[in-house]
């Protein structure tokens, strides 16, 4: 029933959804950043599985781009969190809702 590819993709899906749940239920902004990392990681896993399925290097190339993007995102994201913490003295993301529509 389940072949290798499906197993890998299901695992990626589970990890992704766990990240998503974490994103939805957490108010701490650092936890939200970690949730994004979990989801990115799951997406990378899906690419690796696809690369193994087709025997093409493109999947792994994509994973490297995700890696680079995650690094850049974390550095900028942490800098932003630092600013928010300095401004608001809290890490509660709901506090940073002054720009409502």
């Amino acid at each position: 029933m389940m072949n290798t590819t499906m197993e890998g993709l299901v695992l990626a899906g589970i990890l992704f959804v766990l990240g998503l749940i974490s994103m939805l239920i957490r108010r701490n902004i650092i936890f939200m950043l970690i949730s994004v990392e979990i989801m990115l990681n799951a997406a990378g896993l899906a690419f690796i599985v696809a690369a193994a399925r087709w025997g093409q290097p493109e999947g792994q190339v994509m994973f490297m781009f995700i890696l680079a993007m995650a690094a850049a995102e974390v550095s900028v994201g942490l800098a932003l969190i630092l600013q928010i913490y300095h401004q608001l003295k809290t890490l509660d993301s709901d506090e940073a809702s002054k720009m409502r529509g």
């Binding site: 998503l20 994103m23 939805l24 239920i25 957490r26 108010r27 939200m32 993301s93 709901d94 940073a96 809702s97 002054k98 720009m99 409502r100 529509g101």
Partner: peptide
């Protein structure tokens, strides 16, 4: 109604995406 959804609370936006 639409601008009420712009609460500024990030998690609601993610909820919308989900």
């Amino acid at each position: 109604a639409m601008s009420a959804t712009q609460s500024g609370i990030l998690r609601w936006y993610v909820m919308g995406i989900v």
